[in-house]
């Protein structure tokens, strides 16, 4: 099995992160936005795992477990917000929520 170098893994993580970030900026549907955040979290997790493999340490995997737990929590909260959002704004367009405008 040809080993995957750290650089490759990190480049993949960066690409994933950029995709997630681009989605976050461009997509207006709250569900998609949440999905994009998931992608970014997973990109970060990938980086942790790759780095842990590179140094032969378990820390990277431990961190990924944390990320997973946090992603779960985030999805729980995020979906709850999405439901409230849909109820009060009659839709899922995040740009409708601009009541904090100065």
């Amino acid at each position: 099995m040809a080993s995957v170098s750290l650089e490759h893994a990190l480049i993949l993580a960066a690409i994933l992160f950029a995709i997630g970030f681009a989605g976050l900026l461009t997509r207006r549907n709250l569900i998609v936005v949440l999905a994009c955040i998931e992608i970014m979290l997973n990109a970060a997790g990938l980086a942790f795992v790759a780095a842990g493999a590179r140094w032969g340490q378990a820390d990277g995997q431990v961190m990924f477990l944390f990320v997973l737990a946090m992603a779960g929590a985030e999805v729980a909260v995020g979906l709850a917000i999405a439901i409230r959002f849909r109820q009060s704004l009659k839709g899922l367009d995040v740009d409708d929520a601009d009541r904090m405008r100065g």
Partner: peptide
Amino acid sequence: AGQTGRLR
């Protein structure tokens, strides 16, 4: 003016 209120 910068405070658009838009998350994105």
